[in-house]
Simulated scan of single mutants.
Amino acid sequence: MNEYAEYDWKLHQMQNERLCEVARKRLTDGDRQRALNGLRDAVDKSLNLALRDKSRCQDDNFLRRFLYARKHDVQQSFELLVSYHQYRREHPELWASADGGVLRALADGLPGVLAQRDRRGRCVLLMFASNWIPHACPLLSVFRALLLTIERTLDDVQNQANGYVIIVDWTEFTFKQSCSLQAKVLKMMIDCLQDCMPVRFKSIHFIGQPWYVETALAVIKPYLKAKTRERIMLHGNNLSTLHDALPLDILPAELGGEGPSYNSELWLQDFCRGENINPAPITTSTPAIPIENDPPSAKLDKAYKQKDNPNFSFNGSEKSAKSELLRDKD
């Protein structure tokens, strides 16, 4: 993982962002309007089956997503628009209305949205990985929650223009949880977010990542574009480097910021209002603690299911769990 750790990411990131900012300033309103007209004409003339339903393409704000994502290059914006619609046709279930799994993911901060932007006007998304309970909220539901959150926040032109920053907090993320990271879903996420969504991820920050997360990152690395790899920063337990990239006053207490602890309920309610959903109360189920006359195998099975219980110490391996459960065996 040396290419992540040794990369002078901050200098390169600042240089790239200055160039992008200069490029945006050079675009006049007339340039943007001509690009919008060109994209609209390309859609109207297209016979691509992915664009059979062109109703949404009549919305200028929707088309601008693709122009900002490709820096107002009409041809590239049109290709992204086609890829987006093609992916939606192939995976309609991803864009279905939010169900209980999606609401559970949002309630657990998977993802969350900070109320304040960073100094460059970018929207900051949070992912609290240790809150994920695979048997209660499948990885696909987490992906759908992220996808629908991006769709909702892209209604804001400022997010289209300035892009997003993602912070993934892996603190206390267990090895058992990592075993539920399905390769098929991870590949689906990469294909969608990297090649089909009109979104610009300006930087991706990992904090508190254990070795098995770095191993998983090494596995998916070949599927990431060079630009995406350059924007991933592994901070480990050193929050000072995160604070160099993002101001303390917008970060919650969990990330060493000056703000209060993150309240996932705020974004959940905002999301549900936008989607016209009346969410039922989301409760966290706590499995029963095994009784003394349970056989050892039953104790182990129940322990895996209650790894989210703060009173249970999993310690990241099956061996330690077995030792903890069986040391008082009669």
Rank of each mutant, 00 (worst) to 15 (best):
160 Q>D: 04
160 Q>T: 07
328 D>V: 06
109 G>I: 11
66 F>P: 06
105 A>F: 05
145 A>T: 03
215 T>K: 01
232 I>D: 03
141 S>G: 04
307 K>T: 13
17 E>H: 06
194 Q>R: 01
283 T>N: 10
249 D>W: 03
99 D>K: 00
136 A>G: 01
80 L>N: 09
92 P>W: 02
204 I>N: 00
143 F>M: 12
202 K>A: 14
311 N>L: 11
115 A>M: 09
171 T>L: 03
26 R>D: 02
253 A>M: 10
255 L>I: 04
146 L>Q: 10
153 T>H: 06
26 R>C: 03
240 S>W: 04
109 G>M: 15
207 I>K: 07
52 R>N: 13
36 L>G: 05
297 S>W: 12
285 S>H: 11
318 E>R: 00
137 C>D: 00
324 E>W: 08
237 N>L: 06
125 L>M: 13
159 N>V: 09
262 Y>N: 02
2 N>E: 15
56 R>K: 14
60 D>T: 10
132 W>P: 00
254 E>P: 02
3 E>R: 05
125 L>A: 08
284 T>G: 13
69 A>K: 07
236 G>N: 04
201 F>C: 06
261 S>R: 15
86 Q>L: 05
96 A>Q: 14
13 Q>P: 02
251 L>W: 02
307 K>P: 02
271 F>C: 06
25 K>Y: 04
6 E>A: 08
232 I>L: 12
314 F>P: 03
102 V>K: 01
130 S>I: 02
192 C>D: 02
228 T>W: 03
130 S>L: 07
5 A>P: 01
150 I>D: 03
102 V>S: 00
167 I>K: 10
315 N>P: 00
16 N>A: 07
95 W>P: 04
156 D>R: 07
99 D>N: 08
16 N>P: 02
176 K>E: 00
56 R>T: 11
248 L>R: 08
81 L>I: 05
296 P>K: 02
267 W>N: 01
167 I>D: 13
176 K>P: 00
278 N>M: 09
25 K>M: 10
51 L>I: 10
105 A>M: 06
302 K>H: 09
38 G>V: 14
